[in-house]
């Protein structure tokens, strides 16, 4: 019963945060969600880049996050609510994408995994640099370009003479869907830990 009450309380807090974001940033959220509906990983990368920079990272950059910190939210909760909201947007739009594409279930799952990999990496990088007091958006753009260049060098085929191991874990190139997803999870976890540690929470 206690666990259910706690879960319900957290759900209500998340709803408050998401409603605040939806009302405050309606225009850009609608536009970027429409972009996410385009079934192209390149467009998705750009849309996720802007989406990640539009939510909590935007508030941090414009000193509006203090308003949230003064309310009964912990920095851990805010990070997670931000990530969950973005995940809902990316997964929902990816599912809608896939409805209109004739392909097998495996390809659909891989597309979903690709989308999540992009989200976890880009959101992770944006929040990591925001937590360090830097420009999260600027650094995310730089890291996406760097990753695309490094991941694009050579081949992701392990038997090829110009095999590039980085291309397997690159979040833009995604030579190996599972390895790049796991790397993205690690980036996101690191970003979470730094964000809460720098924010003065244990």
């Amino acid at each position: 019963m206690g666990n259910y009450a706690d879960f319900s309380k957290r759900l209500s807090k998340m709803e408050v945060y998401i409603q605040k974001e939806l009302k405050e940033k309606t225009g850009r959220l609608v536009f970027l969600t429409l972009l996410l509906l385009i079934p192209s990983l390149f467009i998705k990368t750009i849309a996720i880049l802007f989406l990640s920079a539009s939510l909590l990272a935007y508030d941090i950059r414009h000193k509006n996050a203090e308003l949230l910190y003064l309310l009964p939210f912990s920095k851990k909760e805010l990070y997670l609510y931000n990530l969950i909201f973005l995940t809902i947007l990316v997964v929902t739009t990816s599912v809608i994408n896939q409805i209109f594409i004739e392909t097998d279930m495996y390809s659909r799952l891989i597309f979903m995994l690709n989308s999540l990999t992009l989200l976890l990496s880009i959101c992770g990088i944006t929040m990591l640099f925001s937590g360090l007091g830097r420009d999260g958006f600027g650094w995310a753009i730089f890291m996406v370009i760097l990753d695309a260049i490094l991941g694009g060098l050579g081949s992701s085929d392990i038997h090829a003479f110009n095999f590039n191991p980085y291309s397997l874990i690159s979040f833009t190139h995604q030579g190996n869907a599972v390895l790049s997803f796991l790397t993205s999870c690690a980036i996101c976890l690191l970003s979470y830990l730094i964000f809460i540690r720098k924010g003065g929470e244990n």
Binding site: E24, T26, N64, E66, L67, L71, P72, S74
Partner: peptide, 21 residues
């Protein structure tokens, strides 16, 4: 710790509010 914030309310000096709310 952050869980204690339900017992603390804050009024900011600049009276800043969330946009469009």
């Amino acid at each position: 710790d952050a869980s204690l914030k339900i017992d603390i309310a804050f009024v900011t000096e600049d009276r800043r509010v969330f946009d469009n709310l």
